[in-house]
Each structure stands twice: as structure tokens, then as C-alpha cells.
């Protein structure tokens, strides 16, 4: 039985930065190209029962010209929440999809695509109008972008 320490050291091995989200959730910053690899490694080492992806939070950092993606992972059975953070350019927000290895990513990826315009490469279910109303879709606007005018 592998403990929570192993999971942290796995995440640590990929990270290029550390941090904390209140209240004391450990934060690992990784390269965008590595996000999929982290999840592959988690699944390979700990199986599907070892964690679940709670949510994907996309934030538009307009002043920095990039979009921040946070993957909130709950490690089981300890039920500890850790954060995997990555930054992608605002002009070309593309990242590898997780949906084929982790079906639970579907809801988060579809929502982030529809509201923030992040393209998850390899996710066949992405579509506009998943949440956003039709008039916004026709204008091609992403409502959670800071300059969307919504």
C-alpha cells in the first residue's frame, strides 16, 4: 500500500514551482506539456481508485497575457486536496486533453472550453453552447474572459 507521501513525491518530481492555496492545499506548478504525463503517472502508479479529479478552474489573467489552469485533485483514501497549476498563452490556449485516460475530466474540460476558450487537444466532445447562450456563441465570445464585455 502506497501512502500519501508517494503521491506527493510523484507530483513533486514534475513540478517547477510550489505554493499553497488557502487553507493549506499544496500547490504544484507544472509545465503545460506535462499535465497529461502527471495524470498518466498517477493512474499507472495508484490506479483509478487512488485519486479523483475534482475540478478544473480556468482563470483569465489578462494583464499577464496568459490563462491559468488549476487541476484540483483529491487524493484517496486520505482525501487530501492538491492543486496542479499550469499556465498557457492567452492567444493560443491549447493543452492536451485528459478525457481519454480520465473520463471524469469531461465536465471540467467542456465547461472551460465553452466559457474560457481553452482548447483541450484530443477531446472530441468539446463544443460551444455547452453552457453559453446562443447569442454569445454566434459572436464567438467567451464569457469568462475579462474583455468579453459580458
Amino acid at each position: 500500500m502506497m501512502g500519501v507521501v508517494d503521491k506527493h513525491s510523484l507530483l513533486e518530481s514534475f513540478s517547477v514551482g510550489r505554493g499553497v492555496v488557502k487553507p493549506s492545499r499544496k500547490l504544484y506548478i507544472v509545465e503545460p506539456g506535462n499535465v497529461r504525463r502527471v495524470f498518466e503517472a498517477l493512474i499507472e502508479k495508484f490506479g483509478y481508485g487512488g485519486f479523483y479529479l475534482s475540478t478544473i478552474v480556468g482563470t483569465d489573467l489578462k494583464d499577464e497575457g496568459r490563462i491559468r489552469l488549476d487541476y484540483y485533485i483529491v487524493l484517496l483514501p486520505e482525501e487530501e486536496t492538491v492543486v496542479l497549476r499550469t499556465f498557457i498563452p492567452r492567444e493560443n490556449p491549447v493543452i492536451d486533453s485528459l478525457v481519454d485516460i480520465l473520463p471524469g475530466a469531461l465536465s471540467g474540460e467542456c465547461e472551460t472550453h465553452d466559457l474560457l476558450g481553452v482548447v483541450f487537444r484530443g477531446n472530441p466532445f468539446l463544443k460551444r453552447g455547452f453552457f453559453a447562450p446562443r447569442d454569445l456563441v454566434e459572436k464567438g465570445e467567451y464569457p469568462l474572459r475579462k474583455d468579453s464585455g459580458v
Binding site: G47, Y48, G49, S54, E79, L102, G104, A105
Partner: peptide, 27 residues
């Protein structure tokens, strides 16, 4: 099953009905 519940990120009574011990109140 347990594995399906976690891989599909199912939470709450749905996951607990499949034996997944998750409850934010406890953790």
C-alpha cells in the same frame, strides 16, 4: 463500481453508494 466512481469523478452519495469513502465533513 468503485473504480468507475473515482475515474468519472462522481461524488457524494453516488460515490458512497459504491463504497468510496469520501466525505468533506470527515476530511
Amino acid at each position: 463500481s468503485y473504480g468507475e466512481a473515482t475515474s468519472h469523478s462522481l461524488v457524494g452519495p453516488v460515490a458512497r453508494g459504491s463504497g468510496v469513502k469520501i466525505d468533506s465533513r470527515v476530511s
